[in-house]
Simulated assay, not measured.
Amino acid sequence: MRLLASLLLLGLSLAAQAEIKTEEIPYQSADGTRMIGYFAYDDATPGARPGILVVHEWWGLNDYAKRRARDLAALGYSALAIDMYGEGKHTEHPTEATAFMNEALKNADAAKARFQAGLELLKKQPQTDPTKIAAIGYCFGGKVVLDMARQGLPLAGVASFHGVLATASPAQPGSVKGKVLVEHGGGDTLVPADSVAAFKKEMDAAKVDYRFVVQPGAKHSFTNPDADKHKGHGLDVGYDKTADQKSWADLKQFLKDIFGQPA
């Protein structure tokens, strides 16, 4: 009995020591932009595990994107919230956010280079299995991960949450290498119905393995608890706890379908 009690105490002690580790890592893209990534992993998980890139909303690399990286780490993945604007900058004002976003998207090659720099950084981490990489994105980030899939980057899957669906470079048959999950708010007035229809038509034509989920009544930014405070700027956004939880459950199943049960 004493031995059993000692082993139980040892197990509890080790469990208490295990935690989500985080680190800010500076890196640079091919266009010379200095960026700051936010890396998270569970140190109780042994060895390399699938890696997930997290791409922020149009606000930039803020606490919400970092929290999602920690959430993924808690599920057993290696997660890196990447910086698409440079210098880790972020804002809470729509005018600045729009300027940051437009600057990042004005050159498609530069945007791809910034994403790829983050991808390579995640692959280099010892906690990451470089052969098993997926990406998720929110709002602006949803567009980014969908565009990277359209351009044929080696991603096992991408998931977009209340993301922008329109693109200047539609997917072609065979270009998308992995699966696609889109979580869209049924009450999202910032992504019009014709964009939804065009996206589905594009995916069907390109023969992409995709799932499009509509969260009933949910507005743009439905996963972000901070969304409600932005209503003061006249934005038709809002947090929806039910849609947030359901879409996260969908993501967990999506990742299991791609990679199997995380360690």
Results as ranks from 00 to 15, higher is better:
D109P: 07
A113W: 02
A111W: 03
A110Y: 12
L119M: 14
K106W: 08
I136H: 00
A110H: 14
L121A: 03
K112T: 13
K132F: 06
A104I: 04
K106S: 14
D109M: 13
A134M: 09
Q116K: 13
L119R: 03
A110S: 13
L121M: 09
P130M: 04
N107D: 15
F115E: 01
A108G: 12
A111G: 09
D129T: 08
Q125Y: 09
T128W: 08
G118W: 05
G137T: 06
L122I: 07
A117W: 01
Q125K: 15
R114C: 04
A110F: 11
F115D: 03
A108H: 13
Q127P: 03
P126I: 13
P126D: 12
K123A: 08
K124P: 03
Q116A: 13
Q127G: 01
K123V: 07
F115V: 04
P126R: 12
K124I: 06
A135E: 05
K124D: 13
L119D: 02
K123I: 03
I133Q: 07
A104F: 04
A134Y: 01
P130R: 07
Q116L: 14
Q125C: 10
I133Y: 03
A113H: 07
Q127V: 08
K106H: 14
T131D: 15
A108M: 12
I136R: 01
A111F: 04
A135P: 01
P126L: 13
A110D: 13
Q125V: 08
D129Y: 07
K132Y: 05
L119N: 04
L121V: 08
L121R: 02
P126V: 12
L122H: 02
Q125H: 15
D129F: 02
A104P: 05
L121H: 04
A135D: 05
L105Y: 05
K112C: 09
N107P: 10
A110T: 15
P130S: 08
G118Q: 02
A113I: 09
L121F: 08
A117L: 02
L105W: 07
A104L: 04
I133R: 00
K132Q: 15
R114A: 03
D109H: 13
P130W: 01
N107M: 11
A104K: 02
K124C: 06
G118P: 05
A117C: 00
L121P: 02
A134W: 06
K112W: 05
D129I: 05
I136S: 00
L119Y: 14
K132G: 01
A113M: 09
R114Y: 07
A134V: 08
Q127H: 12
E120Y: 08
T131G: 14
R114W: 01
K124L: 11
K112I: 00
A113R: 02
A113S: 14
I136D: 05
Q116S: 12
R114P: 01
G137A: 02
Q127M: 11
A117T: 06
D129H: 09
I136Q: 04
Q125S: 10
A135M: 09
Q127S: 14
A134H: 02
A113G: 12
P130V: 05
P130G: 07
L121T: 07
